[in-house]
Design a protein around this nucleic acid. Structure first.
Lengths: 178, 178
DNA sequence: TTTGAGTTGTTATACCATAACAAAATTATA
DNA sequence: TATAATTTTGTTATGGTATAACAACTCAAA
């Protein structure tokens, strides 16, 4: 299981980081550089900056949110700019798209092939990426039974994260005792 | 495993039905009537017709495609009309939304609570709904281990369906032998 | 140094979805 | 059966997501 670190304790959108998220970003960028170099892909300025901005966000970032941030920094502000960058990063496996949110998230394991499985909190909207070989294998087997050749998986689970569940319980306890 | 019947042999968008799909539609509508009656919900003309149209389609239907069909039949042609109907049908469990396609699909098991798991063919875009208790249980357990309370699942698998795989193989065989 | 591939700029448009409020229909209640 | 309460539908407007199409630029290789 992998978790976007800063999500562990954060409830508010702009919660102060309780760890040095810069490290995650740096690692992600370094991985991206290496990967692109190996594959003869060009991590151009806008692509690189888009990836950084996605990582700097603590939630999945919408295309137009990203576009606005890029525009602030002097990049072209037309939609194709951001969608091209997103397409590149998606194809390179450097980010995931969360379909149910129309938003994009840095991929913590770009260095190895994997599927993005997500736990999405309805309350705080934080997203945890997880990895589950058992489920992956079961899905492949299940599909194969139908003669279906599995290529990609969209697994997005929503509900209440541990923190929000705790908060809800606290609130309820206070409410009932008052 | 459940399958939208007409998808079994269809490769072309407007493939002639090889079974009486009307039966499926009738069953779905009857179930809808019963369900709504039981729950004191009103299956109004536009809702009922929307459900029929979704079932009549052999693929997941986009909101605006559905809106166009409804408009042809004299219903109001503004977007809220169709989104209201869709919201109602979704809430009633009579249809599913395929998030990765922004499209809507009749639910074959509206009569019992279940999650919509989908196999989506990249080639012919047919969709099979399947049901897999093992995976459902595994996901709940996996989420619970993280303290996450699972509420909803979006499971959308893409790849090549059996028919399209067979076609591709045939085409390749012809190509290589020619 | 020109060719060619890839990338970016630019304009326009298509597609997906909801807000907000008015009008009508339905149901419940007096 | 009036009338009030509730739900549904009509209508206008807008916001959010994504791509088509073509021109201009960059950069590396021939």
């Amino acid at each position: 299981m992998t978790k976007q670190h800063s999500h562990q304790h954060g409830h508010d959108a702009d919660h102060v980081h309780d760890h040095n998220h810069n490290h995650c970003i740096d690692t992600a960028l370094a991985t991206a550089e290496t990967l692109c170099l190996e594959q003869g892909q060009r991590l151009t300025k806008v692509r690189r900056r888009a990836l950084e901005l996605i990582w700097e966000s603590h939630r999945p970032l919408g295309a137009y949110q990203l576009l606005a941030k890029l525009a602030e920094e002097g990049f072209n502000s037309a939609p194709p700019t951001v969608y091209r960058a997103l397409d590149f990063l998606l194809a390179a496996g450097l980010i995931h798209k969360v379909e149910s949110m129309n938003a994009y998230l840095g991929c913590a394991h770009a260095d190895r092939a994997h599927k993005g499985y997500f736990l999405i909190c309805d309350e705080c909207h934080n997203v945890m990426e997880f990895d589950y070989q058992d489920i992956h294998a079961a899905l492949i087997a299940k599909a194969a039974k139908q003669g279906f050749e599995l290529r990609a998986e969209t697994i997005e689970l929503t509900g209440l994260c541990a923190d929000c569940k705790a908060q809800a319980t606290d609130a309820h306890a206070v409410g009932t005792s008052a």
